[in-house]
Design a protein around this nucleic acid. Structure first.
Length: 576
RNA sequence: UCGGGGAUCGUUCAAUCGGCAGGACAUCGGGUUUUGGUCCCGACAAUGGAGGUUCGAGUCCUCCUCCCCGAACCA
């Protein structure tokens, strides 16, 4: 787990800053419970992921809520794995989730597992059986489903519903002891097959699964369902407030029903639901995420186009920005989809304050300064320009950047035939080279297709440092790298993975909204020499282009975290 | 069809007991600027509909409309 910090030195784990929350309906509840003494003034929450995939941005919202709440109310929050289904779960996800949680800035403390309660859960199940509140059903899943009825249609009671506690106990023990195959028996709560809430129509508590569990091995062949494990786990741990997302609202009655049947000491925990986080242009369904990977649309769980925490981390999203975003959007019961742009604005705000500035040319075009001096042997003079590392933070100091008569500049910064409001280089136009001199464009060479191949300029020696003694101004400052000193780099640019704001909304299948191309790999980039020293995972600003994260493993590969706000792009858009 | 939840600027989150509907993002305009970045100033812009109660309604009541979730031996 220390490995995260080692691999992402820029992302040293930090304590979440003290929250300055507006109140919300959850905090009001906790405040009210504190005032009434419902839990003796105690607050305990939990973050309960199933280890069947990696954490994503939606989990981040729940994590921030659960952990911040405990922090604000002087309580505790535990990480608990809801590992009740061995067929989908794996130890690797347990490790990954702990790693991601810590990266986000939270400490799980003692890591808890629902599987640690299998014994207690089983004992309680026998208790319910003895009291006639649960029974073994021999029917298959399809039959049980059919008998459950439908919305507005009452269910049908199972023919085995009337078995005696003694029969049920014998059968349950036989289930536990492995006398039946998968699907042959289930244990069901005996509640009400006519109940208007489908969750209370004799829900399944145990099913037979002959898959070894990643923690309990082959000790068990019966596994509790979510409903028969979750509230019980909460109660065992002393949770007071069990927060979950809206789709579990209908389960609340069942959560409460189970707890009412058990001999618990003290006030039982209770469930409260809030709206899950959805973002535009992406998906958070674990099943769909896995599908993207399996189909090869993306490279893996940490592909920078994914909304998983490991992907965002690799892409250069700071944990702090994610936390602040989650706090800012707050918690409510309204289904909504936040604009990804809002998250990006938090990312920019963070990096603007912290990211060192560097110069990098993504689409290089050669710029030759025809009047640049040569030394005694006829070679162009090389000088070093002092460049500010971060104008937002003078303490970050400066660095020396080599400069000579042949540079690479951005193709976008040159136009042989400039459109309206284009401030950059074009024949006759003078611009400033960042931290250098003014240069005037004398000639733009193009190939047969009209693409710029080379720009020929003259520089004004009097403008050293970037200001003209005669006070004349330029409308643009452009970045550059010295052709003889530049390092080669590969840069990955990312676009939305899905073109639609709500992928799948129109057709039901998010894959219908997949972007044709969401990644552009530029392998011919020229960057200033200092970038060769970029630390794995470090995020820098390529001036005028955006924030870029050095890949954690591959040297000289940079992922664009997010672009800078781009007024020129907006102007061009308006110009059509 | 039944049950549960929801509806406020383009988006999203607020609005104390019923008392001037506020912020952020986005957009647009202006200023500063050696990043068309940052920063600063300004503008635009909303209570789903119909009734009712009230001096006064986003808030309370009635009806309507629309949206989301729920019929796994998933979580």
């Amino acid at each position: 787990m220390g490995g995260v910090a080692a691999r992402y030195p820029d992302h040293v784990m930090t304590e979440p800053p003290a929250s300055d929350h507006r109140s919300d309906f959850v905090r009001e509840l906790l405040t009210a419970d504190g005032a009434s003494g419902r839990f003796g003034g105690r607050v305990q929450t939990r973050f309960p992921p199933e280890p069947n995939g990696y954490l994503h941005i939606g989990h981040a919202k729940a994590i921030c809520l659960d952990f911040d709440l405990a922090d604000e109310f002087g309580g505790v929050c535990n990480l608990r794995f809801d590992d009740t289904n061995p067929v989908t779960e794996d130890e690797s996800y347990v490790e990954g989730i702990i790693e991601d949680l810590q990266w986000l800035g939270y400490q799980p403390g003692e890591v808890l597992y629902a599987s640690d309660y299998f014994g207690q859960l089983y004992d309680w199940a026998e208790l319910l059986v003895e009291r006639g509140l649960a029974y073994v059903d021999d029917q298959d899943a399809a039959t049980i489903s059919e008998q459950r009825g439908g919305f507005g249609k009452p269910g049908v009671e199972s023919p085995h519903r009337g078995r005696s506690p003694e029969q049920n106990l014998t059968l349950l023990r036989a289930m536990r002891d492995g006398s039946f195959d998968e699907g042959e028996r289930v244990l069901r709560a005996r509640i009400d097959m006519q109940h208007e809430n489908m969750q209370l129509r004799d829900p399944v508590m145990y099913r037979i699964l002959r898959t070894p569990h990643h923690r309990t091995g082959d000790q068990w062949v019966i596994y509790p369902t979510y409903d028969w494990a979750h509230g019980q786990g909460d109660a065992i741990e002393g949770v007071t407030h069990s927060l979950c997302t809206l789709e579990f609202s209908d389960h609340r009655a069942l959560y409460e029903w189970f707890l009412e049947q058990l001999p618990l000491q003290g006030a039982a925990p209770y469930q409260t639901e809030f709206a899950r986080l959805e973002l535009t242009h992406t998906i958070t369904s674990k099943r769909r995420l896995r599908e993207l990977i399996d189909r090869g649309v993306v490279d893996g769980w940490d592909d920078p186009r994914l909304p998983t925490l490991r992907a965002l981390r690799r892409r250069g999203y700071p944990a702090e920005a994610i936390r602040e975003f989650c706090r800012f959007i707050g918690v409510a019961r309204t289904n909504s989809r936040h604009a990804i742009e809002l998250l990006e604005s938090f990312v920019r705000t963070h990096h603007n304050a912290h990211a060192p500035r560097r110069m990098a040319v993504l689409h290089p075009v050669k710029l030759v300064i025809t009047n640049w001096p040569t030394d005694d042997e006829g070679n162009p003079v090389v000088v070093y320009r002092e460049a500010v590392n971060n104008p937002e933070n003078p303490d970050d100091g400066t660095r020396q950047v080599p400069f000579s008569g042949t540079l690479f500049i951005e193709a976008d910064d040159v136009r042989a035939d400039p459109p309206p409001k284009f401030f950059r280089l074009s024949p006759g136009r003078e611009v400033r080279l960042r931290a250098g001199w003014f240069v005037t464009c004398d000639e733009v060479l193009t190939d047969d297709d009209g693409a710029v191949t080379e720009v020929r300029c003259t520089y004004d020696p009097a403008t050293e440092g970037g200001n003209a003694p005669d006070g004349r101004k330029v409308k643009a400052t452009i970045h550059w790298v010295s052709a003889d000193h530049a390092a080669d780099a590969t840069v990955a640019l990312y676009d939305r993975l899905f073109t639609a704001e709500a992928p799948g909304e129109a057709t039901g299948d998010p894959f219908d909204d997949l972007a044709e191309s969401s990644r552009e790999l530029l392998s011919n980039c020229k960057v200033e020499p200092a970038l060769a020293d970029a630390q794995p995972g470090e995020v820098v600003q390529f001036e005028r282009l955006g924030y870029f994260a050095a890949d954690p493993t591959e040297p000289m590969l940079f992922h664009r975290t997010v672009g800078l706000r781009d007024e020129w792009a907006n102007i061009q858009k308006r110009q059509g």
